[in-house]
């Protein structure tokens, strides 16, 4: 009983405190760079799509709103033939970003994406892809991974020896 009275007193005291409300949209709230808003696909520092279509984001997505299909470039590198996010299902949880091994998929501090037509909430790759590196300026997956690409021969990735000559007898 006393606790109830005390609660009421504490609440009553709030008559004299200022409202915390931010009057959006007249007043824009501050959103941290790691705010989880609209999802984008970034490019690596060389301007190539970072996404390698590994499907991990789709697997991590708790509402299963990401669908993509892998395709291969001339040089054997992977990229998504299509990449679709159904934002009408997305809960902005950021699991996709966490799962992404190439920093391709990133959440941005933008949440103003309402539409009158739900169909417009379906974003294809051309809507998702941005011309920038997002939060991770330097990372390029193919420079690290041991796969051969147009710009990188075998053995030129991070911490790699030149390819072994299997015919050599040297130790």
């Amino acid at each position: 009983m006393l606790s109830e009275l005390r609660t009421m007193w504490e609440v009553l005291k709030h008559t004299f405190t200022k409202a915390e409300t931010v009057e959006y949209p007249e007043q824009m709230p501050y959103l941290a760079p790691r705010y989880r808003g609209r999802i984008v696909l970034t490019r690596d520092p060389d301007g190539e799509e970072r996404c390698v279509a590994c499907n991990l984001c789709a697997a991590a997505c708790p509402v299963d709103c990401i669908a993509l299909q892998k395709d291969t470039r001339e040089d054997g590198t992977w990229y998504p033939e299509f990449f679709r996010i159904n934002f009408s299902r997305c809960i902005m949880c950021g699991m996709c970003e966490e799962a992404c091994p190439t920093y391709a998929i990133q959440l941005t501090p933008d949440f103003e994406m309402c539409e009158y037509d739900r169909q417009n909430m379906v974003y294809e790759k051309e809507h998702l892809l941005i011309n920038g590196v997002g939060k991770y300026p330097d990372y390029n997956f193919y420079r690290v991974s041991g796969m051969q690409t147009a710009s990188k021969d075998k053995g030129e990735a991070l911490n790699e020896e030149r390819p072994i000559d299997t015919r050599s007898l040297l130790p």
């Binding site: 499907n55 789709a58 697997a59 997505c61 509402v63 299963d64 709103c65 990401i66 669908a67 993509l68 299509f82 679709r84 996010i85 159904n86 009408s88 299902r89 739900r118 169909q119 909430m121 379906v122 294809e124």
Partner: peptide
């Protein structure tokens, strides 16, 4: 059990 993309596979045709 980890089949992904169920809510996006057909959404290019219709979001419903």
């Amino acid at each position: 059990h980890r089949f992904s993309g169920r809510t996006a596979i057909h959404s290019d045709v219709s979001v419903h």
